[in-house]
């Protein structure tokens, strides 16, 4: 099963290598890993989506805690949380398909058109993973030329301070 871990780390040289190295070395399956700064100077948040049963996730969390630069690991999978992903997709367009694609992207997916050329169009969309997958599925029938997904970032809802 898929778990979402929200990990606070000291933003030291090599911390990303340590975390990603831990996953590959111990054979854990990372679905996505996103790093970015937080409100606190010198502290970054990694949002890691990882596959595995409960035992594996427990090991992942314990092993993460062993890294000196890891401050806090929250498994927010079963908590209410907000997650977002951003995608850029360059899709093939023809005279006939252009209007329909634009309409659907803007109306249904609340996306944006960020670039247009002769035979293609670049679309930007944000949302949870389900929405990103839906837009990808929709556009694939027209022919996706290139795509870049950021991977998931997530934060737990509410203001409670988690200790685990």
């Amino acid at each position: 099963m898929q778990h979402v871990l929200s990990v606070l780390v000291r933003n030291r040289a090599g911390v990303l290598t340590r975390v990603s190295g831990l996953f590959s070395r111990r054979g854990y399956n990372i679905e996505s890993l996103v790093v970015g700064t937080t409100e606190k100077h010198g502290i970054s948040r990694m949002t890691i989506v990882v596959n595995g049963d409960d035992n594996i996730i427990e090991q992942v969390i314990k092993q993460l805690y062993k890294l000196i630069d890891v401050i806090k690991v929250q498994n927010i999978t079963n908590d209410p949380f907000v997650d977002r992903e951003l995608v850029l997709i360059r899709v093939r367009v023809t005279k006939e398909s252009r209007a329909e694609i634009m309409d659907t992207v803007l109306q249904v997916f609340r996306g944006r058109i960020v670039d247009i050329s002769g035979d293609s169009m670049m679309i930007e969309a944000t949302g949870d993973t389900g929405k990103i997958e839906a837009i990808e599925a929709y556009l694939s029938s027209f022919g996706i030329k290139e795509m870049a997904r950021t991977g998931k970032v997530a934060l737990a809802r509410g203001a409670k301070d988690r200790r685990d």
Partner: peptide
């Protein structure tokens, strides 16, 4: 050497 020894040290440093 810090890269090489990531998996085999408890921790390591490159001091700049």
């Amino acid at each position: 050497i810090t890269g090489i020894t990531h998996p085999i040290t408890k921790h390591n440093y490159l001091v700049k």
